[in-house]
């Protein structure tokens, strides 16, 4: 499928401090891409560059397969960056009405529809400035949602939401993707949320891209396995194949074997190997989630 967002070699410096270095990212149409990174990694800077709120020092952007007319392309996109941008002196309805008029969305009923979607239908004339953080967040999402964009760029959209709100936002994003084919670029500190939501992941640290990977790749990389180290890796591999009929395994850097099958037969594997005269120096049942994988990657980058 075609890439609807493509950032190539983005660099951004503030004075002499480089906050983004040669960052590239592509997001396919209809995908949900999670941008993961620690505070100060450059996630918000990337989103601001996409939103047209700042220029990159170097690098280029393409939306919908074209580098021309980026402003016109932005009219087909919605952004929610940092804390939601809302007029505190206006009600939720008026905030949405403002966006409707600005984006030229013709259907007035859309405001009520969005109020119901984000659960703010009963706020009446209460000023948005008096909303709780969660309500402001919902309103910000509503304002991004209102013009029925083809791409949504959401920076920490579940920040401040209660667990129920987080689930609602997740289901909403999934529904938008499934029913309307909306492409989403999302950042969040709640990695467990992203792991349930995203089809692709971009890990970023210190303004540099660490890894781009799809959900399937992540599942393979994070899937449960038996980590095994012995005094002779080649002989171990031969025994695994011949005596234990293990086919799905991988030798890591020539010193460790990850076995992805027969996870319940650790004792049998151990006994067979020791009976064959091998000395086992490590035998662990392991498995990662996105959080572990991210920490491992970012940790390696720090080192």
């Amino acid at each position: 499928m075609a890439d609807v967002i493509a950032a190539r070699g983005l660099c951004k410096s503030y004075k002499k401090q480089e906050v983004l270095h040669d960052f590239s990212l592509t997001v396919e149409k209809g995908h949900i891409c999670g941008l993961i990174g620690p505070n100060g990694a450059g996630k918000t800077t990337i989103m601001k560059i996409l939103a047209g709120m700042m220029f990159p020092t170097k690098g280029g952007l393409e939306f919908f397969g074209s580098a021309d007319g980026l402003d016109d392309s932005r009219a087909r996109m919605s952004f929610m960056i940092e804390q939601p941008i809302i007029a505190g002196s206006l009600s939720a309805r008026d905030n949405l009405e403002y966006v409707r008029l600005l984006r030229g969305y013709p259907d007035e009923k859309r405001v009520n529809e969005v109020l119901d979607i984000v659960g703010l239908g009963d706020t009446g004339k209460k000023k948005a400035g008096r909303f709780s953080l969660g309500m402001k967040q919902r309103l910000g999402i509503g304002m991004a949602l209102l013009p029925k964009p083809e791409i949504m760029v959401l920076d920490e959209p579940v920040n401040g939401l209660d667990p129920e709100g987080i689930v609602d936002v997740r289901q909403l994003i999934l529904r938008l993707q499934e029913e309307m084919g909306v492409t989403v670029l999302i950042s969040s500190h709640l990695l467990s949320e992203l792991s349930e939501l995203c089809t692709d992941f971009s890990i970023i640290s210190h303004g540099r891209l660490i890894e781009n990977l799809g959900r399937d790749e992540l599942l393979v990389k994070c899937r449960g396995h038996i980590a095994l180290r012995t005094d002779d890796i080649n002989k171990t591999a031969a025994i695994l194949e011949d005596k234990l009929s293990v086919v799905d395994y991988k030798v890591i850097h020539g010193e460790e074997i990850h076995i992805f099958e027969k996870l319940s037969e650790v004792r049998r594997i151990s006994k067979t190997l020791t009976d064959s005269g091998l000395i086992i120096t490590r035998l662990n049942e392991e498995g990662q989630d996105l959080e572990d994988y991210y920490l491992e990657k970012v940790g390696a980058d720090h080192e």
């Binding site: 939103a51 709120m53 016109d72 932005r74 941008i85 007029a87 505190g88 966006v99 600005l102 984006r103």
Partner: peptide
């Protein structure tokens, strides 16, 4: 000034207006 204080003028830029 109210547009800048409440930051809603950002929507004009993000909506791609020249």
């Amino acid at each position: 000034t109210s547009g800048y204080t409440e930051r809603i003028q950002m929507y004009e830029i993000m909506a791609g207006f020249r």
